[in-house]
């Protein structure tokens, strides 16, 4: 009987109109854009849960340290990057009608500092496939570039950092590109 019957998504109340066979229900619901998401702001223990389209208003209201910038091309100027400890630098870049969270994460294990930079679309996995982001570090004689499809809200950025699917560099490379302890990173988002 279950094979004959189709079921609504459990997030139908929030707007999901999918009708599913019982075999496809679980997979769909994990990535449903109408499911509740936890706060995407990295490095804080925030208990917020909400719909995808409520995530950016939450970030701007509750995490005021976030800087928001319009435009496809920006220069992300991370200040004081060598300060000891584990830190995140976070900015929201708005373009093409979407919000992209740009994150620089610094790990510090007994002085061994590593940096990870990644961009996450505050949107679905499907929407993220339409974009490419490029991160660039420049100094007079060198440059370092990373180009990839942005993470989605479903995928999160922690998996990108743990999976090394991001721009990564260590302390000595950071010293090449930093000036007075600050790091300028070009961020360019484009449609693919």
């Amino acid at each position: 009987l279950a094979n004959l019957v189709q079921f609504p998504c459990k997030y139908a109340l929030w707007g999901c109109e999918r009708i599913l066979a019982h075999t496809e229900k679980a997979d769909h619901q994990v990535n449903c854009e109408f499911r509740l998401y936890s706060c995407p702001f990295p490095g804080v223990s925030c208990n917020w849960m909400g719909l995808m389209n409520a995530a950016v208003p939450h970030l701007i209201d509750q995490h005021r340290i976030i800087t928001t910038q319009q435009g496809e091309d920006t220069v992300f100027f991370a200040s004081d990057i060598f300060r000891p400890g584990i830190f995140d630098w976070v900015m929201i870049q708005c373009c093409f009608g979407f919000n992209f969270m740009v994150v620089l994460h610094k790990r510090d294990r007994y002085g061994d500092q590593k940096f990870f930079a990644v961009v996450q679309l505050i949107g679905t996995h499907q929407q993220a496939q339409n974009f490419v982001y490029k991160l660039e570090l420049h100094c007079p004689r060198q440059s370092l570039t990373w180009k990839a499809i942005p993470r989605s809200l479903q995928e999160g950025i922690k998996t990108a950092i743990l999976g090394r699917e991001c721009l990564m560099f260590n302390n000595s490379v950071a010293k090449l590109f930093a000036k007075n302890g600050n790091l300028s990173m070009n961020v360019k988002i484009s449609r693919c």
Binding site: G43, I65, T67, Q69, D73, F76, I81, W89, V90, K106
Partner: peptide, 24 residues
């Protein structure tokens, strides 16, 4: 096509919450 100079955005660090560090 006029080239727009990208705007520089100063981003301040925020400390990673201690209770999350063990999950790293």
């Amino acid at each position: 096509r006029t080239y727009r100079i990208p705007k520089e955005v100063r981003v301040e660090p925020h400390k990673f919450a201690a209770e999350l560090i063990h999950r790293l």
